[in-house]
Nucleic acid binder design. Structure first.
Lengths: 323, 323
DNA sequence: AAAAACATGTCAACCGGTTGACATATGAAA
DNA sequence: TTTCATATGTCAACCGGTTGACATGTTTTT
């Protein structure tokens, strides 16, 4: 059996209370006893049972993360940072891959509450999950509006969309098409589209948006339907990459005949497609802010918190827009 | 305050024991009471406290995952599958990004034990962490030898290395160079190199291996030192991508003058670099096997378990080796 | 010499659920 | 009619650590 405080006490020749005092640095403890206790813990290979501790102090130092999938480089990188920052603050992270499925998301939400997490950071959201409105449980959304009361952190999507579209316009593109993720989501990322449309109109150009499907077949369709397209602003780098692929197959030269810009600029895409123009999201900063907002909610419950935090991204010009 | 069993009991007009019985489906419960109890739980928004439950049943249904970083597409995808499969079995996942740092890894190991995880799956390992030898705590390694007693799951790295090297040989390459990850790690992935060397020698060719550094500067050096290189087998796709980039900069045509093959074949690399030849790892199968082995250890403690599981990968021929 | 600070111990309640023992009551089967 | 399966209640111990109250020393300070 795993040793408990009582066993440590016996070996150290002190009382359980004293061991607990050493563990928590409370009250008076003599240096020699402290050493005795630590020796006993080492000898027994004792690890304090955090489950018992959590039960009593009513705090688990657990944060639930709900995102579509770590497989996606953007979420993978975001989650990496979230976990990292959480760890420096003494928090642990329960990972949930919702895969964009509402049923999974609800189950995870339920599970996290049963496991008494201290807070939740979510970037997965299927419209109309009112379950996020949980009294007494701090929640922060990342790039997703979860409810009117839940703070959201996101990059400056409007500005990013503007940067991307404007770049294509500046490069002389006339038939610029935007490819969106599923627009059913209530996400600030929709502002990228809004910006695209605004910039287009401001330049007397006609906006045209395609919504991506699971298997990127929409891209073929786009080329069929718009043979004169000369600029594509994809709402993420993976889509941009598929555009490039399709263009290659059609012998459309990038950037001469077609200019492409993506969105996200994750480490992975930077490594794998260094030539891709993109709008890089401030992933680390988003993570920092999200944790900060969550911890703030946990600490001073009813303090007013910023409902929307927007962090600027960065335009990266690559070969796909003509260098 | 959060409602507890007692509160539910009061609202439902039954005893706490009855509520617990409903919750756990134990003993005799009448249909009408079951309904009453469920209604009360719903009304109160009651979530059973898993922390209290875990304490008593001495099982948390938590699995610790220690990997370098979710930011890397391989680990991101692996972790996605691990979490997914774990979830279907009722297990939750505590995520740890060790970043290849020994100190972090040790801290995580410590943390996971304090949090009473039921098992650990680790793919991060700095040589000489004997801490993995934990009595009574099931551990499974993924692509890393953790200790002589801990089961490892990996793809068939020797076979993969052979496939990759043989392909380059078959395509007529004479000066084939291998680029490795840090070889200090005790990983089955080293077998890729072994296979490379064996195949080279079997074809009367001289093997030459470079070890990658953090910033890929070694790749420039490789080209400087070996102007006649005509084939490169990179031990992962990210490295392969850097090779391609460097080749482009030097106006070396791929695949005419240089053929390149990577390793991993993650979803992300398949999307971003569809043309890259690679050896695709059976990531999902690795995850499945790892969980299976872990759960087996948890269930029948002292049952003998397979110490090494090797799952075959798949060669994907792309344009970078000449189609 | 008295007061204050230091050091440790004993004891019990508590966190929220689980479980076994035991009691009681009802309706159905033998 | 007796027995048994069903249905629910009461009670208390337990999981492992925390904490406050209180007691009893020993040192330091004043």
């Amino acid at each position: 059996m795993k040793p408990k405080i009582e066993d440590v006490a016996k070996v150290a020749g002190v009382s359980p209370t004293t061991v607990s005092r050493v563990l928590n640095n409370r009250g008076y403890i003599g240096e020699s006893t402290r050493i005795k206790v630590h020796k006993a813990m080492e000898q027994l290979n004792y690890y304090p049972n955090e489950v018992a501790r959590s039960l009593f102090i009513k705090k688990t130092f657990l944060i639930g993360l709900i995102f579509p999938t770590t497989s996606n480089p953007f979420y993978g990188q975001l989650i990496f940072h979230l976990e990292n920052i959480a760890a420096t603050l003494g928090y642990k992270v329960l990972l949930c891959n919702s895969q964009g499925r509402e049923d999974k998301e609800k189950n995870y939400l339920n599970m996290l509450q049963r496991n008494q997490v201290d807070g939740i950071i979510a970037g997965a959201h299927n419209k109309g999950i009112e379950e996020y409105e949980m009294p007494n449980l701090p929640v922060v959304g990342v790039d997703r509006y979860l409810s009117s009361k839940i703070p959201v952190v996101s990059s400056d999507n409007y500005h990013g969309g503007k940067l991307a579209t404007q770049l294509l316009v500046n490069k002389g593109c006339k038939n610029i098409i935007h490819i969106n993720g599923p627009i059913s989501l209530e996400t600030p990322a929709n502002l990228r589209r809004k910006a695209y449309e605004d910039i287009m109109r401001a330049n007397q150009l006609t906006p045209l948006t395609y919504e991506i499907d699971d298997h990127f077949t929409i891209i073929k369709q786009l080329f069929e339907e718009n043979p004169r397209v000369d600029g594509i602003f994809a709402s993420d780098d993976l889509i941009a990459s598929q555009v490039i692929r399709e263009a290659k197959e059609r012998n459309i030269d990038i950037p001469t005949d077609l200019k492409v810009i993506g969105y996200d600029g994750t480490e992975t895409t930077r490594l794998l497609l260094p030539g891709l123009s993109t709008v890089q999201q401030p992933i680390k900063e988003i993570a920092e802010k999200a944790i900060e907002l969550l911890v703030k909610q946990m600490d001073d419950k009813d303090d007013a918190i910023q409902l929307e935090t927007i962090i600027p991204g960065k335009l990266i010009e690559g070969e796909t827009t003509g260098g």
